[in-house]
């Protein structure tokens, strides 16, 4: 059984309720078509469960297959420095078909980033290190492709459709407290 290592930390990008009975962690790649397909489903689940869920996103760029995945991850981290990780995450997935180096600049502008600061941050080696650390944690947790989800720190091996993920989350919510 593959376990999330490390569990959600302060360095993670997290939405929802920190004390929620169930957590969902996604390892994703901004240029991966399967992640693009999973995106609206995950968003629906996050909205639906609201305070009943803690959701975190970690980077798992497969750069050889997806040459823009690393740049996109760094751009999202740079946006995160301006407290806009999630708007960047959304705009990239919502416009995945148009993803390009230029598009990342346009997205940054659209979500209202301070562009000078953004330019400085995307060249900061620390952000690439953070993406690399996410990747390494993914490998150690048993991620072998994207998207991979963890529910309450255990790798979820089911389908990416809404009903399957929701059922697994609800099952884990029901178990909470009895463990």
């Amino acid at each position: 059984m593959s376990k999330l290592k490390p569990p959600i930390t302060k360095l993670d990008h997290v939405r929802g309720n920190a004390n929620a009975p169930v957590s969902l962690v996604e390892y994703g790649d901004f240029q991966c078509p399967n992640c693009g397909e999973a995106y609206p489903i995950v968003e629906e689940i996050v909205r639906e469960l609201g305070h009943g869920l803690r959701f975190a996103y970690r980077h798992f760029p497969l750069s050889t297959a997806h040459p823009l995945a690393l740049s996109a991850a760094i751009a999202a981290e740079a946006a995160g420095r301006q407290r806009k990780f999630w708007p960047m995450h959304h705009i990239i997935f919502e416009n995945q078909q148009q993803l390009s180096a230029e598009a990342l600049w346009a997205f940054a502008e659209t979500i209202g980033l301070d562009m000078q600061q953004f330019e400085k941050d995307i060249n900061d080696r620390e952000l690439e290190d953070k993406v690399d650390a996410d990747f390494e944690s993914g490998v150690r947790s048993g991620v072998n492709g994207t998207p991979t989800f963890f529910i309450n720190e255990i790798r979820y091996n089911g389908g990416y459709d809404r009903d399957s993920i929701m059922a697994a989350l609800q099952k884990n919510t029901a178990n909470h407290g009895s463990i």
Binding site: P61, L62, S63, T64, A65, V139, N144, G145
Partner: peptide
């Protein structure tokens, strides 16, 4: 997928 993963590693 497997070789792509190892290539990143």
């Amino acid at each position: 997928d497997q070789v792509s993963l190892y290539n990143e590693m």
